[in-house]
Simulated assay, not measured.
Amino acid sequence: MESDERYRRAKRRVRVLKGFYIHLATYIGVIGLLFLIDFLTGGGWWFYWPLLGWGIGIISHAFTVFGIKGFLGSEWEEKKTRDLMNSYSNK
């Protein structure tokens, strides 16, 4: 039973992460397209308004998915240190 619960939790986490990465990729693509349109049409720069507004949404989504400690917190430092130690020992 415990492994089934762990599997369900892991599966849910993967769906949440996938949703965030799709959101981020869409943001990057749309903002890039808006920049291109703004650049080609000339006039005043307006693309940064959706960049800022939607960017706040992306940051909010990231904090929901990763939590405040997930961004460069002590857990991240420990994991990154272990990853780097493993990569150095493999060389």
Results as ranks from 00 to 15, higher is better:
Ala10Gly: 12
Tyr88Val: 04
Ile31Trp: 03
Arg8Tyr: 12
Leu84Met: 07
Lys18Ile: 07
Ile68Asn: 10
Lys18Cys: 15
Gly53Ile: 03
Gly55Trp: 01
Trp76Pro: 03
Lys91His: 11
Arg82Val: 04
Ile58Leu: 14
Arg6Val: 10
Glu77His: 13
Thr26Lys: 12
Tyr48Gln: 12
Gly55Pro: 01
Leu40Arg: 12
Lys80Glu: 13
Ile28Asn: 07
Ile37Cys: 06
Leu34Ser: 04
His23Glu: 09
Gly29Pro: 05
Trp46Arg: 04
Gly55Ser: 04
Ala10Phe: 10
Glu5Arg: 14
Ala62Glu: 00
Asp38Asn: 12
Asp38Thr: 01
Gly19Asp: 04
Ile56Glu: 00
Leu36Cys: 05
Lys18His: 15
Leu72Ile: 09
Val65Thr: 00
Leu51Ser: 01
Thr41Gln: 12
Lys91Cys: 06
Ser74Glu: 11
Arg13Leu: 07
Lys18Asp: 09
Leu17Gln: 09
Tyr27Gly: 02
Lys80Val: 13
Ala25Glu: 01
Glu77Ala: 09
Arg15His: 13
Asp4Arg: 06
Gly32Thr: 06
Leu72Arg: 06
Met85His: 15
Ser3Pro: 12
Glu75Gly: 14
Asn86Arg: 15
Ile31Met: 14
Gly19Tyr: 05
Gly44Val: 08
Thr81Tyr: 12
Phe35Leu: 10
Phe47Thr: 02
Leu34His: 05
Glu75Trp: 05
Tyr88Lys: 06
Asp4Thr: 11
Ile31Tyr: 06
Glu2Thr: 11
Asn86Val: 10
Glu77Trp: 14
Leu52Glu: 00
Trp54Lys: 03
Ile58Thr: 04
Tyr7Leu: 12
Ala25Arg: 02
Phe35Thr: 02
Val30Gly: 00
Ile31Leu: 05
Arg9Trp: 07
Gly73Lys: 00
Val30Lys: 00
Tyr21Gln: 12
Arg6Lys: 14
Gly43Lys: 04
Leu40Lys: 04
Val16His: 08
Leu33Lys: 02
Gly43Ser: 05
Lys80Trp: 15
Tyr7Pro: 06
Ile28Gln: 02
Arg8Gly: 01
His23Met: 08
Leu40Glu: 07
Phe71Met: 00
Arg82Phe: 08
Leu36Gln: 05
Leu51Trp: 09
Thr26Ala: 14
Arg8Trp: 14
Phe71Ser: 01
Leu34Arg: 05
Phe47Gln: 02
Asp4Ser: 13
Trp76Ser: 08
Asp4Gly: 02
Trp76Glu: 11
Phe35Asn: 03
Thr64Lys: 04
Glu2Lys: 09
Trp46Phe: 07
Ile22Ala: 10
Asp38Ile: 01
Leu36Glu: 10
Ala25Gln: 07
Ser87Tyr: 13
Phe20Met: 03
His23Asp: 05
Ile22Thr: 12
Asn86Pro: 07
Val30Met: 03
Glu77Asp: 07
Lys18Gln: 15
Met85Thr: 15
Trp54Cys: 01
Arg6Asn: 11
Thr81Asn: 07
Trp46Met: 00
Gly70Met: 02
Glu5Ile: 14
Ile56Met: 07
Asn90Thr: 14
Trp46Val: 06
Gly19Phe: 02
Leu52Trp: 10
Ser3Arg: 11
Leu17Met: 10
Phe39Ile: 09
Leu24Lys: 06
Leu33Pro: 06
Tyr7Met: 14
Ile59Tyr: 10
Thr64Asp: 00
His23Lys: 11
Ser87Gly: 00
Trp54Phe: 07
Arg8Thr: 08
Glu5Gly: 09
Leu72Phe: 12
Ala62Leu: 04
Phe63Trp: 04
Asp4Lys: 08
Tyr88His: 10
